[in-house]
Amino acid sequence: MDEVRISVAGVCVALRINDAEVAERTRARYREFLAPDTTPDFVIDVAVHGREEVSPLMPRILEVTTSFHDDILTFESSFGEGKADFDAGYGMLSAAHLPMVRLLIENYLRILYAWYMVRIGGVLLHSAGVVKDKRAYLFFGPSGSGKSTITRLSMEHVVLSDDILIVRPVNGSFQVFGVPFRGELVYAPRANTRAPLVGIFRLRKAKEHRVELLSPARALAELVSCAPFVITDAAMAQRVMKICVELVRQVPVKELHFRKDSGFWRVIDAQS
């Protein structure tokens, strides 16, 4: 059994993998987030069965279903299944085919972190994040709204992600944390850092750069819509809304209309 410990947004997961090669690849994949000396919040046994039954080149859709009852998260996909007991801090992941293990572990971790964050007062959001002058800006919206474009146009700053971020309160104010999970820009940096959240922007592609303040209800609805996985459970959706209400109260949410050049930063800076 080979152990890989990663820490994301202050939550450490120890993956105990029964395959040395998979463990090594996992270690390389999450190298910026390795935390070998951190006490894990979760221990996950990863069992890899079978090796070459599925060609890695064969296009496949990794469909995932999750459910959450009595603090137990259940994860099922066509290539494996898993569970995580939030009270015990223990879980398992059974991967059926070696070539799909990377995707399976990544999806399992996304889902685990999404649900666990809500439990501890944070939220995982479909959003891009950029740290500029030590302050974090979060850009969100559905697929196609421009998260990857904003990221591409912000490479001179610290890019946290073009796809998914974690926001959670630290000492009463919200911080944005980078995550290792990948979006459209496979080779974009995923900084393992955090910064105080100072701006939240719902993206709209436009012909000119401008910002508009969203009403608190609209802001809440837009943010909650970008919380993947967890709002499919009514009780969890209620908790996500509670967290997002605090977020909206602390950091006003604006709509950023932008075109494809970095001039949107001037508009944002003018708001600060």
Binding site: V224, Q238, M241
Partner: peptide
């Protein structure tokens, strides 16, 4: 359904459909 009031408006989440 999950609902929350904010500034006199309500935000509803329908969990089955998201």
């Amino acid at each position: 359904a999950a609902g929350r009031m904010i500034d006199n408006e309500a935000v509803l989440v329908l969990a089955d459909s998201g």
